[in-house]
Design a binder for these strands. Structure first.
Length: 212
DNA sequence: ACATTAAGTGATT
DNA sequence: AATCACTTAATGT
């Protein structure tokens, strides 16, 4: 391997500094790459490792009673999966499904070290931070649903995607976006058309370009 | 050229 | 805002 886990950690998880912790992750963590579309975790599966994302993005979703998928969040560089953490601490099976949205590289660490690593301040704050971030996101999502109309939600969604992917171009179909927002394809298409007329976006097949 | 999939649109609830 | 039914456009084979 061209780069040690230690180096990858320093570059992508700068808040993890404690030497004992870095040693632990280096020793027990495994560097892994997966391709776009790969299933990383399914509902009901037992969780044996925790992913720490180095590059790319991962879509994390839940399923409702009728089997409809509901988007929870996207993970990107420097982040880990809050749901995996809760599940493994409670020895529960996975309640989520995770799919690689782009090619993803990550460090996976076995769950059995979670308890032990809690003695490190850096690990505690890393874990707490990922909870805090998700919780804030959850609150935001909640009032976005309660107070924003679909067009505002869509614009917000596009902005967020663009920031996460580091590009003004969002390579997604209207259908995919509709699923993420629990809306329908036609509604998304119509709003996007309006936005295009207003000069906010430029539309293409399977892609949306933000002009703002 | 043809089939398939994405996107656009009007009508209805 | 969602759904249906249908059209049109883009893309793969």
């Amino acid at each position: 391997m061209n780069q040690s886990i230690k180096e990858i950690l320093q570059q992508n998880f700068p808040t993890i500094l404690d030497t004992g912790l870095v040693e632990g992750i280096s020793e027990h963590g495994v560097y892994k790459e997966v391709e776009e579309g790969d299933l990383l975790m399914d509902i009901g599966a037992k969780i044996s490792t925790i992913p720490m994302i180095v590059s790319g993005s991962v879509k994390v979703m839940r399923e409702d009673e009728e089997g409809h998928e509901i988007l929870l969040y996207y993970l990107s560089k420097g982040e880990t999966c809050a749901m995996s953490l809760t599940c493994c601490m409670a020895y529960k099976r996975s309640e989520i499904r995770a799919v690689a949205q782009e090619n993803v590289s990550m460090i996976v660490v076995p769950v059995e070290f979670m308890d032990e690593w809690m003695m490190y301040r850096d690990w505690r704050s890393f874990v707490m931070n990922t909870y805090r971030m998700r919780f804030e996101e959850l609150l935001e999502a909640l009032d976005s649903i309660a107070f924003l109309k679909m067009d505002e939600r869509l614009l917000k969604y596009l902005d967020e995607r663009s920031i996460k992917m580091n590009s003004k171009e969002i390579p997604m179909s209207h259908q995919e976006i509709a699923v993420d927002l629990n809306s329908s394809r036609e509604v998304i298409s119509r709003i996007l058309k309006q936005m295009e007329r207003k000069g906010i976006v430029k539309l293409g097949r399977n892609k949306i370009q933000l002009l703002t």
